[in-house]
Amino acid sequence: MTTDLRTTAGCTLRDAGKDWDAIRVTRSTGLSVIEILGTRCGAVVEDPLTTSLYFFVAPGVAAAWDVDTTRPLGSGSSVTIPPDRRTQGPGPHWRMCPGEDRWLTDADALRAALADSLRPGLGMERLG
């Protein structure tokens, strides 16, 4: 059964596992990952209530995802999707808006960016 529930704020609760899976990360980690990925980053939803970012990956990726400090959301999970082009709150909004060819982030690139973002001293290297 597909969930497609619209909220009063215009958001839609959408099931993962069909068109995409999602990887949830903390906001601070997610912002670093977006910077590392640059133009390779797909759409990203920010949820201020949970201070989380959601990266969208190919369906089925969540089943084998095993990266510490992240939570994979595949079949049986849902993600709140904001209205098109909502880029600020209150509530869930796009940190990176989806485009026709920019919905999904490559899972291997996301995994590598997560590893880089969690490496000790990364922030200091960028400053130096």
Rank of each mutant, 00 (worst) to 15 (best):
M1P: 08
L5T: 11
R6Y: 03
T8Y: 05
T8H: 06
A9I: 14
T12F: 01
R14C: 06
D15N: 10
A16V: 03
K18P: 00
K18W: 11
D19T: 10
D19N: 12
W20M: 07
D21E: 04
A22R: 00
T26M: 05
R27C: 08
R27E: 12
T29D: 11
G30T: 03
L31E: 11
S32Q: 15
S32D: 15
V33R: 05
I34P: 06
E35T: 13
E35I: 15
I36N: 08
I36C: 06
L37C: 01
L37P: 00
G38T: 09
T39V: 15
T39I: 15
G42D: 07
A43T: 05
A43I: 06
A43F: 00
V44S: 05
E46C: 14
D47S: 14
T51I: 09
S52Q: 15
Y54E: 10
Y54A: 15
Y54P: 03
F55T: 04
F55A: 06
F56Q: 00
A58N: 07
G60V: 09
A62M: 13
A62V: 14
A64P: 04
V67Q: 12
D68S: 14
D68Q: 13
D68K: 13
T69S: 13
T70V: 09
P72I: 11
L73W: 04
L73H: 06
G76M: 10
S77A: 09
S78W: 08
P82S: 08
T87D: 13
Q88M: 13
P92Y: 13
H93S: 12
R95K: 12
C97W: 00
C97H: 02
P98Y: 02
P98K: 00
P98Q: 01
D101W: 05
R102K: 12
L104M: 11
L104D: 04
L104P: 09
T105R: 00
A107P: 07
D108P: 04
A109H: 10
L110R: 01
D116H: 04
L118S: 14
L118Q: 15
R119W: 11
R119P: 03
P120M: 02
P120N: 02
L122V: 07
M124W: 11
L127I: 13
